[in-house]
């Protein structure tokens, strides 16, 4: 199988590392060769963060380069656009509609580009926008945005729902399983 590429992007502190952990565990359980690449340290402090998940028969590079991503899962609206150059021509973007102002916007040095997803759609990019924050709150914990988005990814992915549920049970702390399963369903059925 040709290597498949999923990018998980967002703002430091939004919980993208747990999402990549879940996805990685699921893909390993499915028998794929998997590589997951993260950046820790300075960029985690509210900066733009990106995690690469790659899987297939034999994965070499740990990173996803320009024009290679089959999916971009974005935890924040403009972060999807920031990494859009990495998307394949026929790739899909799943994006949380939440907007978090970066510091240049807060200080007034830049404007938040609200129409950026429309521009992507205008260029023929498949964009699935979802209010993951509201769904996470509905599930019972605003921090489950990551699992709502994984639920949404599961909708398009080739792996059965039951396997995802199994992976969630094995990945999140026992006390958060219930909330996260709810979050997963809300994302999946949105």
């Amino acid at each position: 199988m040709e290597t498949k590429n999923v990018m998980i992007v967002g703002v430091g502190g939004q919980g993208s590392l747990l999402a990549s952990k879940l996805l990685g565990a699921l893909l390993v359980a499915e028998g794929y060769d998997v590589k997951v690449s993260e950046v820790h340290g300075m960029s985690q402090r509210g900066g733009s963060v990106v995690t690469y998940v790659r899987f297939g028969d034999n994965v070499y590079s740990p990173v996803i380069a320009q024009g290679e991503a089959d999916y971009i899962i974005s935890f924040e609206k403009i972060e999807a656009a920031r990494y859009a150059a990495n998307l394949r021509k026929d790739g899909k973007i799943i994006v949380n509609s939440q907007m978090i102002d970066p510091m240049p916007v807060i200080t007034g040095a830049a404007q938040y580009p609200v129409d950026v997803l429309d521009e992507l759609r205008g260029k023929g990019v498949f964009v699935d926008e979802i209010d993951a924050l509201s769904l996470a709150q509905q599930a019972g914990n605003a921090k489950s945005v990551n699992i709502v988005l994984m639920g949404r990814l599961a909708k398009y992915f080739h792996i059965e729902k039951e396997k995802w549920i199994e992976a969630i049970k094995n990945t999140v702390k026992p006390q958060f399983v219930e909330v996260n399963l709810k979050a997963f369903e809300l994302g999946y059925n949105f």
């Binding site: 402090r45 380069a65 290679e68 656009a81 920031r82 150059a85 021509k89 970066p102 938040y112 580009p113």
Partner: peptide
């Protein structure tokens, strides 16, 4: 990364989308 290697050896890059809108940087903050 792969892009660097392809570029150095003059190999074609995969097609991708480019945006006109400039996305403001998101530096790490306190």
């Amino acid at each position: 990364n792969q892009t660097t290697i392809r570029a150095a050896f003059g190999l074609p890059q995969p097609e991708n989308v480019t945006l006109e809108t400039e996305v403001p940087v998101r530096p790490p903050v306190m």
